[in-house]
Simulated assay, not measured.
Amino acid sequence: MSVIQRHIDDRYPVLQASEKVDNALVQLQEHGLHEAPVLKDGKLVALVSVDDLHEAARAHEGDGNVQRIEDLSFEEPETVHGDQHLLDVFEQVSNNRLFDILPVKGEDGEYEGIVTKSGLLRDIALLFHFSEKGSTLEIEAPALGVKISEVISVIEKNDAMVLSFGVAEPEPGAQTMVMTFRIQCQDIYRLVTNLEKYGYLIRYAKPSTGAGADALREKALEFMRYIDM
């Protein structure tokens, strides 16, 4: 089962396209929701917010017309499929911050439920170990001739474990590239000095927040003494 399938909420309240705007507002308020999918014959047709419905209600206030959701115009909503990988939906997760939910469609186009962007972002953070008491290390290296596997090998030889990493694509004509690592390391200052001995330029190194203040202060002094040598 994919991460997205584990997150699907098929009990999240939905609105029908034939619903009157006023009634839809009442339903959302009763459930304490800001947004909801809109279905027609089991198919997703829109994603509406309380603000959208209030605006529609104000626009037709007093004109005697019965406004239904299907009479309104909405952009086609962002959707995901349950079998997609978590990283392949990151663009949808980061787009359209007005909504915290993403409708999920099946292979036949039928509506299956919703996932929350906040829930997916938490899983992305877990995947890359952003929430752990790890250290962040940013290295600048020549764009040509350096293999990431070699850098990882050097890091691991210094009693550190690489949890995740990313590489910023060099700009056209750039001579260097930037690699960012999330690592577990007991002594990041020693790691930094050893990496510099290999000729790597350390642009950023932040130790685990789990280390005590006295220990970090001592490591900082040790690192400064090394620089002065």
Rank of each mutant, 00 (worst) to 15 (best):
A46R: 03
I4R: 02
T180A: 12
E30D: 15
G106T: 03
G145R: 04
E222Y: 01
K157P: 04
I152A: 06
E140S: 13
D83S: 11
E35F: 10
F99Y: 15
E169T: 11
K40Y: 07
G106I: 04
V162A: 10
Y198P: 01
V38R: 06
V151H: 05
I188T: 05
V21P: 09
A141L: 15
T136R: 12
F99L: 04
A24I: 08
D83L: 12
Q29G: 05
S94C: 03
G113I: 03
A174I: 11
A57W: 11
A56I: 13
L72D: 06
A220R: 02
T79N: 03
A125S: 04
R182V: 02
G199N: 08
S94M: 14
I124N: 01
M1S: 13
N95I: 00
R217I: 13
A56N: 13
I152E: 09
V50S: 14
A125F: 08
K219M: 10
E30F: 08
V48H: 05
V38N: 07
L127G: 00
A213N: 07
K157I: 02
L221H: 05
A46P: 05
A24D: 08
Q175C: 00
I152Y: 06
S94F: 04
H85E: 05
K206W: 06
K105A: 08
L201K: 13
L121F: 12
K133M: 05
H34F: 06
E156Q: 15
E76Q: 14
G134C: 01
I155Y: 12
L47Y: 02
P170R: 07
G199W: 09
L98D: 14
A211H: 14
P142T: 03
V89Q: 04
K197V: 10
V154P: 01
A143R: 09
G173W: 11
D159H: 15
E169S: 11
L201C: 01
G166L: 06
V3H: 04
Q186S: 10
I227L: 13
E107F: 01
P142G: 00
L201W: 09
E107H: 05
D51Q: 15
D71T: 07
A141R: 09
E110L: 03
L121W: 03
S131Y: 01
Q175P: 00
E169M: 11
L25C: 09
V146D: 01
V154D: 15
K157W: 13
L39D: 08
D88H: 05
F74N: 08
I8V: 15
Y198E: 15
L127E: 06
N95V: 00
E218I: 07
H129W: 00
K147D: 09
G62E: 12
E19F: 04
A57M: 15
V48A: 10
D100T: 08
G62L: 11
K206H: 12
A17E: 06
E150S: 09
I124M: 13
D52R: 12
R11A: 11
R58E: 15
A24C: 11
S94Y: 03
I188C: 05
R122T: 06
E76V: 09
L191D: 09
L127M: 11
V93M: 02
F90Y: 04
P13F: 04
L86Y: 02
M224P: 01
P37C: 12
M1Q: 10
